[in-house]
Amino acid sequence: MSSILGADNTYNLLKKALDASSLRQKAISNNVANINTPNYKAKRVVFEEELRKQMTAGGNIRLKLTNDRHIGIQSGSRGVEPRIVEDRTNSMRSDGNNVDIDLEMSNLASNQLLYNTLIQQTNNKISTLRHVIQEGKG
C-alpha cells in the first residue's frame, strides 16, 4: 500500500516522462537563450529512445531467476534517466553555433503539449484511484 500509485508501472513511467519533458524544456530554453552565442552547440535530451530500447529488451529477453532476490531485466522505466547531450552536428552558420531556431520553436511547442498531456494522464490516474478508494462516492 505504501505505493498504491507507486506500484503502478504506468504511473512511474509518466513521472519519469514528466521529468524528461521538464528537463527538455530547460534544454530548449537554453538553446534559445544562446541563439547568438558563438560556438554554442545545441543541447538535446535523450530519454525516449533509450527507454524504448530498454523496454523492448526487457520484453524479449527474460532472465531466468532461480532466487527471488536475483535481479532480472526490468521491463519498466527503472534505470533510464533523462540526460542532456550536446548536438555535435555541423552547422551552416559561420559563428560555429548550430542552433536552428525553427527546430527549437517546434520542439518547444511539441514539448509543451507533451508535458500538458502527461500531466493530464497523471491526473486521470490519480482521480481514477481516488474514485475507487472513495467507493464511487467522491
Binding site: 498504491i4 513521472k15 514528466l18 521538464s22 500531466i119 481516488r130 478508494i133 472513495q134
Partner: peptide, 23 residues
C-alpha cells in the same frame, strides 16, 4: 525542489495513501 510536478505528485501520493488508510 527540482520540479513543480514532483512536489505536487509527492503530496498527491501521500494524500491518496492516507485516504486509502482511512477507508
Amino acid at each position: 525542489a527540482e520540479d513543480i510536478h514532483s512536489v505536487l505528485l509527492a503530496a498527491e501520493e501521500a494524500r491518496l495513501a492516507l485516504e486509502m488508510a482511512i477507508q
